[in-house]
Simulated scan of single mutants.
Amino acid sequence: MLDKVTSKNFKDIIGSKVTLTIMDGPDIDLTVEEVHEVKIKKDDERPAGCRKKPFTVILSGPESYQAPDGCYNLAVDKVGVLEGLYVDNKADNPESEDFNTEAMKKAAAAAKKKAPAKAKKKADDVTVVDNEQETQPSPVVLYEINFG
């Protein structure tokens, strides 16, 4: 199944939820944030059986419950369950901090947009909806999956 998955499968669902299966805990819903295709030079030879168009998927999830680096199953709508994917938790990997910072800003901004409006009561007991977003979005952690 993994050999049939392409970057388009993930590009079509950017902003959607996927489910990471945790064997000894509750599953984690992650959001597909970004998909990056890896540029291959024409003269680079790839071993037989390697993906012709490698790509990376960036996912975001709650900081309050994280999965450590490791192999997991990932349930993706319209694709199915992808088994045995190595998922890299970027919270403990500062070596790609610049990339993480940019992706983190995007994920935080998306979470902020999705924050529900708060109801406020005025002095005359009339309830109004406050459309102002919270200034502190929920903390997120990024995960990276390489399909190479």
Rank of each mutant, 00 (worst) to 15 (best):
F55P: 02
V32H: 01
G61I: 03
L74A: 08
G148Y: 06
I28V: 12
D24E: 11
I40C: 12
K113I: 15
K8Y: 12
P47M: 09
D24I: 01
L2P: 05
D77C: 05
K114P: 10
D29H: 05
V81S: 11
K41Y: 04
V81C: 08
S96D: 01
E83D: 08
D27E: 12
A91N: 07
V18K: 01
K122Y: 14
L74I: 11
V18E: 02
S7I: 04
E45N: 10
P54T: 05
N100G: 03
S138E: 04
K78G: 04
P68N: 10
D92P: 02
S7D: 14
A117M: 09
A111E: 05
D88P: 00
K8L: 14
T19E: 15
K114G: 15
D98K: 15
E45C: 04
Q66E: 10
F55I: 06
P68R: 14
A123S: 11
E102L: 15
G15Y: 07
Y86Q: 03
E134L: 09
M23C: 12
L2W: 13
A91I: 04
A119D: 11
K118L: 06
I14S: 02
V76Y: 06
A115H: 13
T127P: 06
T135A: 03
G70E: 09
P68G: 02
R51C: 06
T19S: 14
G15T: 09
G15M: 11
F99W: 09
T56V: 11
Y143T: 00
E95L: 10
N89K: 12
P62T: 12
T127M: 10
A48M: 07
A119M: 14
E102M: 15
V38C: 08
M23L: 12
N146H: 04
A110I: 07
D44L: 03
E63Q: 14
A48W: 01
A103R: 03
A103E: 00
G25T: 07
D125C: 07
T21D: 14
D88F: 00
Y72N: 07
N73H: 08
F147Y: 05
G61S: 07
Q133M: 05
T56R: 02
M23Y: 08
M104Y: 08
K113H: 09
T135M: 07
D124R: 15
K53T: 10
I13D: 01
A103Y: 03
V126M: 10
Q133W: 12
K112M: 14
S16R: 05
K78Y: 13
V140I: 08
L59K: 02
K8T: 11
T6G: 06
S64Y: 14
E63L: 15
K11N: 13
K8A: 11
I13R: 01
Q66M: 13
E102P: 02
K78F: 15
K11L: 13
C50Y: 10
N9L: 09
A108I: 15
P116F: 11
A103D: 00
V76N: 06
L30R: 08
K90D: 00
K78P: 06
N93P: 02
D24K: 01
E83I: 06
V128E: 08
F55T: 02
A48G: 09
A67C: 09
G61Q: 07
S138L: 11
M1T: 13
Q136W: 06
S60A: 09
R46S: 09
N100W: 07
E134I: 03
V81A: 05
A91V: 04
M23N: 12
T19V: 14
A109S: 05
E144P: 00
A75L: 12
L82S: 14
M23V: 11
N9E: 10
D92R: 15
D88V: 00
K106Y: 13
